[in-house]
Design a protein around this nucleic acid. Structure first.
Lengths: 203, 203
DNA sequence: TATATTAACGACACGGTGTCGATAATACAA
DNA sequence: TTGTATTATCGACACCGTGTCGTTAATATA
């Protein structure tokens, strides 16, 4: 779709999106104005309204595009390995987890700002929804009925989805101190084995 | 400290805080203005500025007060049972968890709005910090050194803190379908046993 | 180089903000 | 019950960011 677009439009929108990320990083989302954004992007303020309705719309469209890219980069892996093998190979990093961390790492500036700055609408919720889908599919594959779940299905899905998202945020806050492969492995371990090794109460 | 205050001040501030919760629930945080809040509270707009700097300040002070009440209601239990017994009695509900759910249930309207509405500053982060302290203490007691942890300590703390918070949010979103005792028990089970019962890979 | 598309620019009314001074209402203590 | 201090009310003000004009300038592409 971007092939049909005037290159100036692409340039303008990218300038605005980059300016938004920079300014959120510097001042926080709440404080910045459309004036600030266009000034940073070296564009006239009226130009802004040719492309976006307001500040929130710019953030929303930027978030949507980024998250769509993420889903598209993960989906192939997701389809190939229909069995998920979430449990059996729990000492191996899960491939979807790895792709998740890798893709985020490729765009870490934006992810870090959008996920760690306070009061950013949409983005965290959107990523959480993506992770909820992934977790839900995984648990659905492992346990199609609810008999062998320790807690209600919905509760478990939300529990692990939020936990995974938080680990991603932690990873970004600390400037990605571990590799995607290591992170994916760790998530598998803590999910399956819990917090403690050799826990006698575990089974 | 509230004993020294003029009852009119207490009344005014309570009116403003209640109006804030109502309006966030009805329109969302972003949309509402100081005008809206004072109109709903049947106060003059200038009166607002005698008590709060702006909309964010009102939200912040309201959040702080609510979270302080929560910590105070939990802290006694926290001190009494220094051993935490997080693991040994994992089929029993953890007392601090129970008090957490009970206290939230007593003020559920505010908690539900502040935790489930989008783009509410401060509150979620503040509650998460409280839970992080709790989780961190629990893990510190169980495993003072990092030898027997399945993943880096900081990662585990954030993992479970975010998971617990999400379950609280889930509970509120669904209008508290289970008792605090049941919720506390479920959190213990999923934390210690993981998602699946009789999981052969668990030990 | 011609043409169509888009950006730049200046200006405008609008609405919410934060503050002010003067007046009215109210709690509490004498 | 009355006096006093505190607080709320009220109307008004300048300020700032917003969203939208119409006109002019710049630029990509054929």
């Amino acid at each position: 779709m971007s092939k049909k677009m005037d290159p100036r439009v692409i340039r303008t929108r990218q300038l605005l999106r980059d300016a938004l990320v920079e300014l959120i990083d510097e001042q926080g989302y709440e404080k910045i104005t459309v004036q600030d954004i266009t000034q940073r992007a070296t564009l006239n303020r009226a130009t802004f309204y040719l492309h976006y309705r307001d500040k929130l719309d710019l953030l929303y469209q930027s978030s949507e595009e980024t998250l769509h890219e993420l889903v598209n980069s993960i989906h192939p892996t997701f389809e190939e390995k229909k069995d998920f093998d979430l449990l059996p190979n729990y000492e191996q990093p899960h491939e979807t987890f790895m792709h998740l961390f890798e893709q985020i790492g490729l765009n870490s500036k934006l992810y870090k700002v959008y996920l760690t700055e306070k009061n950013i609408p949409y983005f965290s919720g959107g990523l959480k929804d993506i992770i909820i889908d992934f977790v839900s599919s995984g648990i659905q594959f492992m346990e199609p009925n609810d008999q062998k779940l320790t807690v209600p299905r919905e509760m478990a899905v939300r529990f692990y989805a939020a936990a995974f998202l938080e680990v991603i945020v932690w990873w970004l806050e600390n400037d990605m101190p571990y590799t995607p492969k290591f992170m994916a492995t760790q998530l598998m371990r803590i999910t399956i084995k819990g917090p403690y090794i050799d826990n006698p109460f575990q089974q």
